Computed example of a mutant assay.
Amino acid sequence: MIPEEDRPASWLRGYGGIEADIRRLREFADKLQAEVERNYAPHLSYIAEDMKAPVPNPADAFIELVNFLRAHHETQQATADMVWGVRDTTGHLAVAASTVANSYTQSDAFSSARVADVERALANPAAATPRGPSPVLRDPTSPETGPMSGPVVLP
């Protein structure tokens, strides 16, 4: 017996299945891939340049500023990772949708497609190759030396 909290919502109980139109799935895959390639990926270089703008090291004695810039850097790096991840993950979703559409093009889509096939397509790590890592941003509070940096000595 399945516990009540693990059962589907009451309005979903007894529903037999979900129908999908494979032609529409193919259309979705193509449009999603085109959207990523034409309208998302080309802008990533501009975002990277903006995020790499040098920030001078803070004064060591101003510990609040040092802590703020450290937190800002961590947040900015996490944001860059997410923005670049969206490109690869969306591309992966488009390739998975395309894989499922190709598998069922010649069949009766309303009776042949299985959830396991969709899950297998989404789980395939080779479905979409990542196109490069997100930029690594310089931490203005790090002890690295360079044109706009000098070691920050924390009290």
Rank of each mutant, 00 (worst) to 15 (best):
M1L: 11
R7C: 10
R7K: 08
P8Y: 09
S10C: 13
S10R: 06
W11Y: 13
Y15P: 05
E19T: 11
R23L: 10
R24W: 06
L25R: 01
R26H: 12
E27S: 14
F28Q: 03
A29S: 12
Q33T: 15
E35F: 11
V36Q: 11
V36R: 03
D50P: 10
D50M: 11
M51Y: 12
V55G: 00
N57I: 06
N57G: 14
A59S: 10
A59K: 05
V66I: 00
V66C: 00
N67S: 05
H73R: 00
Q76T: 13
A78L: 07
A80C: 12
T89Y: 08
T89V: 08
H92R: 10
A97D: 02
V100C: 08
V100A: 06
A101G: 08
T105E: 15
S112P: 05
V118I: 14
E119M: 14
E119G: 11
E119H: 08
P125C: 02
T129D: 04
P130F: 04
P130T: 06
P130M: 02
P135Q: 07
P135K: 04
R138I: 13
P140E: 00
T141K: 00
S142A: 14
E144L: 13
T145M: 05
P147E: 03
P147I: 02
P147S: 01
M148T: 09
G150M: 03
